[in-house]
Design a protein around this nucleic acid. Structure first.
Lengths: 241, 241
DNA sequence: CGTTAATTTGAGACCATTCAATTTCGGTGG
DNA sequence: CCACCGAAATTGAATGGTCTCAAATTAACG
């Protein structure tokens, strides 16, 4: 990549749990990076495609999704800068889900072989990647619970808490009001709800004084209340410092 | 473990994708294994507990679950012999979900530090474990889709297809009729349904001539029909040989 | 053979969906 | 800067899938 500083989000994330030496960082920087930009809704990975590269989100948001036969879409996770979008592509031969840009975003791309080689050579990096993917897994598990055993109000409250919590831990937001790039349809796709019901549920949360959300700006007015409504505890994010 | 052959299920599973040398196997056998038996419904891991060991399922079935505040339970995955139940315990300090025995089962237990050390020393083993946990992740993703975007009939059909497919790939069943240890309540907990509705939905599947299920024995009478009903494709299991 | 767990059935209520229409927002070109 | 346009958000009403509560039946087990 021309702008090597873009990798810093990645380092910051990894170093939350694993110490990286200068040699580690040099090795990561020395990978054959290429930089790529995607428009809103563009596909970064398509289910069924052979996997060749691994992608780090540098700027903007992305999400993973799968489509069912009747055309409905389920969003499986939402990603913020500094996260690896498709680490499973390093070992699995065929992509098992789609990755899409949530808004205009830029990513760093590494051929999967070089990344695998790096993990062989740099134990700290390996450990950081391993840990990251285990946390990924934990988030998937929580999402199964969210769509499986919570009602609409709880699901959406939980989703908002998770995103806020992760953004805060990543140092990407400071206060309780910040840019929130999901449309109501996308919130619905992430929670297994229709856009109509998502809309009504958001109104309920607003009327309860828990959030204010309009024009892509979200304010969490009552964190404890929202967390209680969404049955949210941040343990599954494993981001304790 | 007194009976070292119990590890064979593990080796068979790993070798589906990664070749293991005799040295690799010796190293795995040399780990400080202990063997443990659990009664039906016994807890192997409890959410919130510090993690100290890693567990391989040797015989019987187990499942992972989380409880929500109102007491409802969501089953997150179901495990068959040869699978690692809690590999995330190697790196994450606190368990983020519960693991329970589905029926009477026996497991092999390894202190997590020894397993971590083994992954440092044996690249093949490391690769096998990594791959396994990536497939785990893929299954979680599919479950999010299952409970998020499929109706009751589809969810249950999908669950039955997944289990059948995994059991077959593991060489644990031969024909279309085999022991199926889930109660209807557990099927409901795995699909985000109530036991009552699970019961009615199973009757629908029976009446459609797709399955026969009674007294813990499942027959898939029409695989293609069941797979179509459940929108099932085995790609996400990554078990192609 | 008794006791508990698991399955099954019925009826009514409710949460979420569907379908359709309206309003507001955001971006673009004249 | 305003007019226009498509996308997103909002509203209404009717339908429907799933839940709840309760009771009956059957299976599992010591």
């Amino acid at each position: 990549m021309t702008d090597l500083d873009s990798i810093n989000a990645l380092f910051r994330r990894w170093q939350r749990s694993v110490p990286l030496t200068d040699d580690d960082k040099r090795a990561v920087r020395a990978l054959p990076w290429s930089r790529k930009a995607y428009a809103r809704d563009a596909y970064l990975v398509r289910e069924g495609q052979p996997t060749k590269v691994c992608t780090v989100l540098i700027d903007g948001f992305a999400f993973r999704q799968k489509l069912v036969t009747d055309g409905a879409r389920q969003i499986i996770s939402i990603h913020i800068p500094g996260e690896l979008l498709d680490i499973q592509n390093c070992l699995l031969g065929i992509a098992d889900h789609n990755v899409q840009a949530l808004n205009r975003c830029t990513v760093g791309v590494i051929p999967k072989d070089s990344l695998v080689r790096l993990t062989e050579e740099r134990p700290n990096v390996r450990r950081a990647i391993w840990l990251d993917s285990l946390i990924d897994s934990s988030i998937f598990r929580e999402w199964v619970v969210n769509v499986g055993r919570r009602d609409a109000k709880e699901r959406i409250a939980h989703l908002l808490c998770e995103l806020a919590s992760r953004l805060k831990a990543a140092g990407l937001v400071e206060d309780a009001t910040y840019q929130f790039p999901l449309t109501q349809e996308q919130i619905g796709d992430a929670t297994g709800l229709t856009p109509v019901h998502t809309n009504r549920t958001l109104q309920t949360l607003r009327r309860a004084g828990l959030i204010s959300l309009s024009k892509q700006r979200l304010s969490i007015l009552d964190w404890d209340g929202l967390a209680a409504t969404g049955d949210f505890s941040d343990r599954y994010l494993h981001q304790a410092v």
